[in-house]
Amino acid sequence: MIFIVVKWTPKPELVEDFPDIVADFTKATRAEPGNLFFEWSRSLENPSEYVLVEGFRDGEAGGEHVNSAHFKAFVAEAPDVLASTPLIISQSIDADGWGEMGEIRV
């Protein structure tokens, strides 16, 4: 799996509208056959920051994502709504999705 975490900081006047701004991009990415998950959260430490956690089946699926029309359109439009360059961690890991946490059982 390609596991990606990206930190996004929208312009101050767009922080509250950011989920709506990324909605079409999110919907299109989640519809990709190789997408495992594409989940946005808001930082508890910095409410002006959003965190995106992404999973793609493999490098081929990740490549299809970055070559898709919706990704290219989003990349072209993103600088207009961001206050800073996003920060990213992208790694290939030996997993195919989420598993239960071993230290806590409910």
Rank of each mutant, 00 (worst) to 15 (best):
F3V: 12
F3L: 14
V5I: 05
V6E: 05
K7V: 01
W8A: 13
W8P: 01
T9L: 12
T9V: 15
K11C: 08
P12L: 03
P12M: 03
L14H: 04
L14R: 05
V15P: 03
E16W: 02
P19K: 07
D24E: 15
F25Q: 11
T26P: 02
K27V: 08
A28H: 13
R30G: 10
E32N: 12
P33Q: 06
G34C: 07
N35L: 08
L36T: 02
F37T: 08
W40N: 02
L44W: 02
E45L: 05
E45C: 06
S48E: 13
S48N: 13
E49C: 12
V51D: 06
V53M: 14
V53L: 13
G55C: 07
G55L: 12
G55F: 02
D58V: 07
G59N: 14
G59M: 03
A61C: 04
A61L: 12
G62L: 11
G62E: 11
G62A: 10
G63S: 09
H65W: 00
V66P: 06
S68D: 10
H70L: 08
K72P: 08
A73R: 08
P79E: 00
A83H: 03
A95C: 14
G97N: 08
G99K: 09
E100Y: 05
E100T: 05
M101W: 14
M101P: 03
G102S: 15
I104Y: 13
